[in-house]
Amino acid sequence: MRSSFLMSLVLHVTVVLLSVIGLPYLQRSPAKENIPMVVELVSIGSETNLPAQPYQKPKPKIKEAKPPKPLPPKPETKVVLKQKIPEPKPTVKRDLKPKPVAKPKRKLKQVAPKKLAKITPRRKPTPPDPFALVLKNLEKEIKTTQMAKKPKKKNKSKKSDFEQQIAKVLTRRPISESSSSRITMTEMHAMINTIRTAIMPCWNLQPGAKGAQNIVVIIGASLNPDGRVTRAWVKNRSVLIEDPFKLAAAETAQRAILNQACQPFKLDPKKYDIWKDVTLNFNPSEMFGR
């Protein structure tokens, strides 16, 4: 009876001690988990290694009679093991499929974010070339710069006047006075536009990659009342994680929404409950003309 009591006491003390000493230790150095495992790059045979001397500028003498020396080959370096760091699992609530949405307007040049709600008329996409927008084509540039420069400018200023007028008309409409949870389409659209224009400069694409135009990333984000993003996660991570390129695209989108340089979003604090959670569809297909 007594010995078992002692045993119990010892065990309890141990558990308590562990929880006091052990846990904070674990918390303090989370990097310990990430400590890279040793990967041995085996170098085969030291004589096959490159000479240690720094690279000497070759003399532009040509009339040497001696044959060139054989070049020592590059040393073989074999990676025996590659460490993989486990990805933190995001809390995926549900996997929202990207809805077929109306094609947003096409802008050839980035327009500075406007505070007013703005509706840009939908324009026919001109380039049939799938890479035309993000990828350079010398031939096209020659043609378009000469032909289309001036008239386009005119159109643009006209258009934005028109846009602003419409926007004014729309925003002037009396908003349903009662509650913050009720908003007009106009307000909704203004919010979306605010976030959209804010994020665009922070979304760095990888346009040269194969199939880059086909990857849609859905990001969920929580916002603070001050309009800053507190948390963002990739909602369709499961379909992206298998391909390193898709994963990279997902992370690019995640970085765009987490980039403080593009925040805070200037949204009406009274409507916070509407925009405190947002879902963002990152879809670059349009930039590739598709």
Binding site: V101, A256, V278, N281, F282, P284, M287
Partner: peptide, 8 residues
């Protein structure tokens, strides 16, 4: 609230 980001 859903936002479509189509340009970067």
């Amino acid at each position: 609230l859903r936002v479509d980001i189509t340009r970067g």
